[in-house]
């Protein structure tokens, strides 16, 4: 899993460094997904872990830690909003200047 996350971050970085806004936006998508995966790994996961509801499972069964999924949900919402904003602005830049290469904007 760590290797997958590493590769995703590396891919995201290389995409962000491309001279094209649409690649940059996609790079951020990659980054945010890599982050979410990393948070899952942080929280730990095993199939036999139960959902942590009060009274839903017998005492002594291992429970899932609910906080990392919480954080992931919030992070997904935020990265979704920022991603949408980025896409819109990239499109505005394209409409304004006819190019999506940040180097050529004047």
């Amino acid at each position: 899993m760590a290797a997958v996350i590493g590769v995703m971050f590396a891919a995201g970085t290389s995409m962000i460094l491309r001279p094209s806004l649409i690649w940059v936006v996609m790079g951020f998508g990659m980054y945010s997904n890599a982050t979410n995966l990393l948070l899952i790994v942080c929280g730990g996961y095993a199939p036999q872990w139960q959902a942590p509801f009060v009274g839903a499972s017998a005492p002594g069964t291992p429970l899932m830690d609910p906080l990392p999924p919480d954080i992931i949900l919030t992070a997904i919402v935020i990265s979704f909003a920022v991603g949408a904003l980025l896409l819109t602005i990239s499109y505005c830049v394209y409409l304004d200047s006819g190019t999506d290469d940040p180097e050529q904007l004047t």
Binding site: Y31, L38, C42, V82, L85, V93
Partner: peptide, 28 residues
């Protein structure tokens, strides 16, 4: 404005990503 905001968003989004990663690692 559009051009500079684009750059500003890009750099800050990178910062935010690392912030979430930092939160996750601190929690672990």
């Amino acid at each position: 404005q559009v051009r500079e905001t684009m750059r500003y968003i890009a750099i800050n989004s990178i910062g935010s990503t690392f912030f979430v990663v930092g939160c996750g690692l601190v929690y672990t």
